[in-house]
Amino acid sequence: MEIKLSGVTADYQIGPIRSPLVLDHINLTVASGSFTAVVGPTGAGKSSLMKVLNGLILPEEGQAVIGQLVVRKGADKKTLKAVRKRVGLVFQFPESQIFAETVEKDICFGPLNFGATAEEACTIAADVIGQVGLDRTFLSKSPFSLSGGQKRRVAIAGILACRPDILLLDEPCAGLDPDGQSEILNLLTRWNRDYGMTIVLVTHDMDRVARYAQQAVVLVKGKIVFHDSVRRLFTDPARLKDWDLDLPEARRFQLKLEKHSGVALPGVCLTEEELAEALIKVGRV
């Protein structure tokens, strides 16, 4: 499902305090079936962008078109509910929203809310628990007896249970151990590749961007300053510095080595595997 934002401006309000223009006239098209990373310095508006895509913040100006649905100021509840069914949003630390006494009940909450029967919801729960790499014995457990990584996967299963076409994730790996992190990311890659699920991932970690995403969007002070392939994003280090963004470790190491040796390695290396291949090509190892 395609996402198209035109001229989207958003303010953010908590109580009486208003931050104007967290999003400043955003134009953005996210192709159906793509895996896009949204990056930018802290406070750039990344989380707000996710909320607009999910209809949690309505644009002050402009509109977001998700499939056939239009999110704009004053959009009716019915449209917003339909948007939230199509677009699953995984917040930071999603496990803090787990509330039911069993994993199954927690996963069923979403589908029941969107009109599934109890029986349908249970079938879905049994299906999605497998999709997040946990077996069905987990369904009867209390979510609070699980480890951090397991809870995170249960929370993501709860979102998948609503059968979204688009999955938005805000730092889904924060706080997980390296194995837990790659498990989550490999799951995302699989859903993207096998089911054509459109994935938008907010992350600070450029190594994840380099390894998993195809497209990158750079957000700075509420504006989109870059939207292109991940490899192009990491080509020019000076530009990244202007945006206060890091390089993936492999690319950083590559540039350090090139500066030290005065010899350019072939290509832009995004991972340690690519760097090893480049070193083999130039005959250093």
Binding site: I14, S19, T42, G43, S47
Partner: peptide, 10 residues
């Protein structure tokens, strides 16, 4: 600033 309105890293 109001702490609840800062970004996660801040």
């Amino acid at each position: 600033a109001d702490p609840s309105r800062l970004s996660g890293g801040q």
